[in-house]
Design a protein around this nucleic acid. Structure first.
Lengths: 337, 337
DNA sequence: CTTGGCACTCAGGACCGCTGAGTGCCAGGG
DNA sequence: CCCTGGCACTCAGCGGTCCTGAGTGCCAAG
């Protein structure tokens, strides 16, 4: 139904359009790529491709541009992931290795990704729910207030204030801290809630009111507030040229944490790079955008996602290569720390 | 040199231009504002104002628009700060009071400010260097690695990994923690560096190597890395209509922490609202932008800045009112927690 | 199935003229 | 001395027209 040459034509159209941002015609195709057939032949092929919905012409007497369906075919069957050179990989590695901090890792990752792809980069913090407790700390702040600090094995630190119903003394706090760490250390955060609910028995009755306050904050931190943090960078790579609908809406979407989560989310398979093209991502206002995303994590489990957002007219092979490489190295850095 | 009516004319021009974004002519001026003179008179006044550099005409036979100098005069002498109604203030207060976290306070503040002014909002985290240590925590992570957590009296939490030269046992860490807290609790961060440098004497010789590593990280955290954190929101309020130079550069500037610091920075007086107009802020690429900023903080000292960035053609009275109100309430919330 | 030829389409740029908002200047009046 | 109405002038923006060139679809011949 689509012979080899037609596929080659589609690939050529996508490549040319991506690099020039102008509708591509039969003539320019034949001499830019060395297809050894005449323009007329190409035109016939194009007619077929258009009929099947892979390309369209913006107006009569203009060249063709790929449709979402066209890009999809391109990504699925016509292009690979462009691998990075050893030098590039080394540069990525050393840039990320300079980070001294989880925050810093994420920041560097987002910058790097934005720079490599010249698109908007989106990086999700290592998810709370998939990581494990490394340490819990209770710090007295005031008469009836504690600071609860929860450290995960990915280096993420969550902090919450706890208002206590009653006053407390140092000893009871020490004890509570010991109990918490004994019971929770190393446990998956997803399991913590159920463990905590069994805990009250293990503290002296006098202390239960205060302990309960602490426990409920822990649960709240883990469950109620599992909205993950997402960081965006490279917004200046957005140009009004793409996004005819006006990039205001794109900017708006990028400011909504929830939207970003949806954008990255869903596909839960580990490390492979996923591409969502145009209307495929159901976010309103990003109908003209594509998302290239991948999971990253220390070890084999995917802790969180990262990716880039750009116009459907995007250099997918390169973007996919960058996302894959960055995901890999970021995961590696996290595993080491 | 500029009589009352000329000032009134300037004010009217600024107000009209701000609200319509179109050059304003003598005719439309007289009937929109009830100046009871003829257009011809206004024209004469305008000619003078133009000669003095307060207004220009984009092209012959168009109305006038204010220059930076014109806006400056407007802000300094012709307009007050628009106060917020009691209802609005209450809304602000309850919105901010819902925050449970320093991060959350900052996030809400930035959203609020962006929404109130319909501009880009910029909020700086309460500065490390002006706050005081509330608690230092050391958490063993691995064989030779600690997590250092530093909590300030504004609720900010800094975390850093410490690589130790040698192994350690629980007791020595306990001791070190105790020493640190004893010596640093309540001290201004600016003083911490000098205090820490005297500390090595107070630990057992065996432990000095490890302790030194911890100390150097503390100093590094406070001194070397005093780059403050800045959060930006409401970027979608940027419209290509303003910023003819292309808002790409504006977006770029807004992604640079350093630039943002410079933007807010400098004027160090406490709580008053400062306005920097157009070329007055020497940041390249923001020559067409104005910044309305104020310090905020718990109590009387200003801990950090917040503000909005927008086109010079901005509703200054409202923006100033919003910035002042938000700064006030955010400071209040911080003081309470 | 491919190819060259041919007629057709149409977006975008160049050009033109008009209109209306806005100006500057001037002479007369309070 | 300042205000005012009148008048001539300017010019951005808008709409219309024309032309060109890239690109197409179709067809008949190889």
């Amino acid at each position: 139904m689509l012979d080899d040459r037609k596929l080659a034509v589609l690939r050529a159209i996508v490549e040319d359009f991506v690099s020039t941002n102008e509708p591509v015609g039969s003539k320019s195709l034949v001499d830019r790529h060395n297809l050894d057939v005449s323009p007329a032949t190409i035109r016939n092929d194009m007619a077929v491709l258009e009929e099947q919905g892979y390309i369209v012409q913006p107006h009569t007497s203009a060249g063709r541009i790929p449709t979402d369906k066209g890009y999809r075919l391109f990504v699925d069957r016509l292009s690979g992931i462009k691998p990075f050179s050893a030098a590039e990989r080394r540069a990525i590695e050393t840039f990320l290795a300079g980070a001294y901090d989880l925050d810093d890792v994420v920041m560097r990752t987002v910058r790097l990704l934005a720079q490599l792809t010249r698109q908007v980069a989106v990086v999700q913090y290592p998810s709370l729910s998939k990581s494990a407790v490394r340490h819990i700390e209770l710090v007295p702040l005031a008469e009836r207030r504690l600071l609860l600090v929860l450290i995960t094995d990915t280096g993420r630190v969550e902090q919450r204030n706890v208002e206590l119903p009653g006053s407390f003394d140092e000893d009871s706090i020490m004890h509570l801290r010991a109990v918490l760490n004994a019971c929770l250390d190393g446990r998956k955060l997803t399991d913590v809630a159920s463990i905590v609910s069994d805990l009250p028995e293990r503290v002296a009755p006098r202390e239960r009111a205060n302990a309960a306050a602490v426990f409920s904050v822990i649960i709240e931190t883990l469950v109620a507030r599992h909205e993950e943090k997402v960081v965006v960078g490279g917004a200046s790579n957005l140009t009004a040229a793409d996004f005819s609908q006006g990039l205001r809406e794109v900017l708006e979407a990028l400011e909504e944490q929830v939207v970003l989560m949806r954008l990255l989310g869903e596909s839960d398979d580990q490390s492979s790079v996923t591409v969502r093209i145009g209307a495929e991502n159901d976010v309103l206002g990003l109908r003209a955008a594509s998302v290239v995303a991948a999971g990253y994590g220390s070890g084999d489990r995917a802790l969180a996602k990262l990716g880039v957002v750009g116009p459907t007219r995007m250099d997918y092979p390169t973007a996919m290569g960058a996302v894959r490489a960055v995901a890999r190295y970021t995961g590696q850095i996290l595993a080491e720390s």
